Simulated scan of single mutants.
Amino acid sequence: MDSSSAVVGLCLEMCPERERRDRESQGRLHQFEIQNIQWTYKGRRGRGRPIADSKKTVKEYRRPAAGKELSNPTDLRTPATLVKTVQYLLMEIWSSVNYKDLSSLAKAYTFVFDRLRAVRQDLIVQRIRGQAGALVLEGSLGFLLCAPYLVRDLPLADYDEVLHSTQVRECFAELIECYKGGGRFCRQAEFQSLLLLYDLGNLDTIRRCLQLPSEVQQWPHVCLAIDINKAHLENNWVRLFRLLHQLNCLQACAFYRHLSRSRNKALCTMIHAYSSRNCRFPLYHLTRLLALDSPSLTANMCTQRGQTVISGEQTYVLFLKTALNDVEPELPNREIVLVEQKKGKASWSEVMIGQDNVITNLT
């Protein structure tokens, strides 16, 4: 598409004034967007409606449909405003989340997810590419890759895994197009590695990566992700889990969707390889091989699959392939060793946006 004919946004606020007025009058403001303890009173019964805070209101996502104008320049945010919006959503809204309160977590997730879709919509309508587009998409992907780990306990009504995955893939596709335009992108190698980890074992993704410039291919992030893909394709599970320990927090979140299935395949392979009534496999060693957080989790995985755990001075597992039960991989759960310890003292918002890209003053 010819970018020279694209409409140019003029809006310098996170939400266009017209939308802010409309949603205020219709009572469609989110709790993150209203002024504190201030209400308008209309009607004989004195019913109040919240007043929008212009510094907190963020443009919501609208589905393209007949009769809905999405290309009005005054309703489209400039590239700088889109970057500011992504920073605000992650560093102000998401940083205030109470992860122990599922209701608070659900409200924050649905709000940030929707507003980031609107950010991408403005990006697409204006056909913004290059460094400006990459900066917006990199921040958005940081959230989209970490969120599945953080919202894993939310019900389907609040977290639609299929819709979320679709947004991740579309974001990656648009980001790769930004990189193809040429120029210097500080985080290109990092996000190429994240795509390799998210699309684990996808031969098309690996092939495209091997066609990248040599300076990108040779970057440690990319080399590590390629090695993990090789170990996966070769069913070399011991090597794969050793390599996983080298991932940083954001990379571990990108791989998280494959973790349960990889552990299941690794354990089933070991059950067949070490199947013998005279063989005792140390439970502690198996826990380390599978990068699990505790021996009790490992023992539970083994017993679920029909294997015998023998307690004593040391605890062992007796592998028998004839007793192997065909069970579904465990549901995604909390991962301290592979995910949370890698975060260190950084906040989740800083992991998402990249600590070197944090803007401390958003006003």
Rank of each mutant, 00 (worst) to 15 (best):
G142T: 11
L144P: 02
C146E: 00
A147N: 01
A147C: 05
Y149R: 00
V151M: 03
R152C: 06
D153L: 13
D158R: 07
E161W: 01
H164V: 00
T166M: 08
T166Q: 11
Q167H: 14
E170S: 09
A173S: 13
E177N: 14
E177H: 11
E177I: 11
C178K: 02
C178T: 02
Y179V: 02
G182Q: 08
G182I: 07
R184Q: 10
F185L: 05
A189F: 11
Q192H: 15
Q192T: 13
S193P: 07
L194N: 11
L194Q: 14
L196T: 08
L196K: 09
D199V: 06
D199H: 07
L200G: 09
G201S: 07
L203V: 12
T205V: 14
I206S: 03
R207M: 11
R208W: 08
R208T: 11
C209H: 09
C209V: 06
L210I: 04
L210V: 04
L212P: 07
L212C: 13
P213F: 00
E215V: 11
E215G: 05
V216H: 05
Q217D: 01
Q217H: 03
Q217G: 02
Q217E: 12
Q218A: 06
C223K: 15
D227E: 15
I228K: 04
N229P: 10
N229Q: 07
N229E: 03
A231S: 15
H232G: 01
